[in-house]
Design a protein around this nucleic acid. Structure first.
Lengths: 191, 191
DNA sequence: TTGTCAACCGACTAATCAGTCGAATAATTT
DNA sequence: AAATTATTCGACTGATTAGTCGGTTGACAA
């Protein structure tokens, strides 16, 4: 199962990730990616048909890595609330520990690059998310909403939490991540 | 107070907005912007020192327009909850009615372009937001949070709401916007 | 009328970029 | 060992791009 992927290919993907996050897609010449990866331009185009394929590969691979990291930790026991809290914390922590990867995903998602295809393919690695959404809707514990909103809501709160802790690294603590979860799930108002 | 800004300059900014949203910054040649605006390249560089200045101007102008549109409607009467609901709905509606403008702001905010300077300058037009945040914190109606999070939380929920309605235009209705507000403010769980 | 200046044009340039190609080398197969 | 194939290289090319420049036009002032 462990593919023996070329070291050079990995080096190219790593260099590309860093450069894309720092300089944007079009402002990052393939020549620069190659140099940073310590290979020749020709080698880059040996592994990737063109720049677009490199970007798509990087996106899919990054999303997969994220999906696997989180799925690994995912427990299917406990109350819905507890499991959601765990899931939330795992995702937020991944975002905090892998800032470049998360920035890249955000950048890509907000760029005109993304096609319906790559979006959906990436979603495949988050089946458990779809499952838990269905469970949430069916549980009766939620306010009456249509599922499409729950999806966007979840993505949105993950995003805002990770963005917040990126902007304010001094606020990162187990306690604050819990606090953020409480606010997103149970509201910001005391009632 | 009403600056008599050249029609051509406006045409350039309008063309740039549309092209940037569709194709990204670096993938949009200045020559194309000029053509779409119906002017010569030279004219573009007559109004803007370089491409970067054009992008910055567009960002600042767009944020200002948004800020003014919302401030205009902003009422300082009623309960905190009611005023927040009104503010939320105004912002979300602006995002829905001005999709390209909002996309552009998102795209720019998520790109490596943005400098601390442009970010802060843009924030100037949202004083009332800062005010209401301070009021929120002081009111005792909120859970105990530090203000930095409230800022990021507000930005985040505006974002997720507008993104949601962009993805699902069929869901746009006064009722649903209210629903989304309720969920973001009072939690997604029934308790 | 003459002079001035800002708005405007588009051909042009120097630089940069994505991607090619033929050759060299390393790994694998026969 | 010989032949075949995969990996790697980097100089090169054709296309594209940001920005320039010399000149034209039209408005307005002296």
């Amino acid at each position: 199962m462990t593919k023996d992927v070329s070291e050079k290919k990995q080096a190219i993907l790593k260099a590309a990730l860093e450069l894309f996050v720092d300089r944007g897609f079009h402002n990052t010449p393939t020549s620069l990616i190659a140099r940073q990866a310590g290979v020749a331009t020709g080698t880059l185009f040996h592994y990737f048909k063109n720049k677009e394929e490199l970007i798509d590969t990087l996106y899919l691979e990054t999303k997969t890595k994220m999906g696997q990291a989180i799925q690994q930790n995912f427990q299917n026991t406990g109350s819905l609330d507890e499991r959601m809290r765990q899931l939330f914390k795992d995702i937020v922590k991944w975002g905090i520990l892998n800032p470049k990867e998360y920035r890249f995903i955000q950048q890509f998602s907000n760029s005109p690059f993304i096609t319906k295809l790559t979006r959906d393919t990436a979603l495949d690695h988050f089946e458990y998310l779809t499952n838990i959404i269905n469970e949430l809707v069916g549980s009766g514990e939620l306010k009456t909403v249509y599922p499409e909103f729950i999806e966007d809501f979840l993505e949105g709160v993950f995003n805002l939490a990770i963005t917040h802790f990126r902007r304010h690294p001094d606020k990162i603590s187990e306690e604050n991540i819990d606090l953020v979860f409480d606010i997103c799930w149970h509201g910001i108002f005391v009632t």
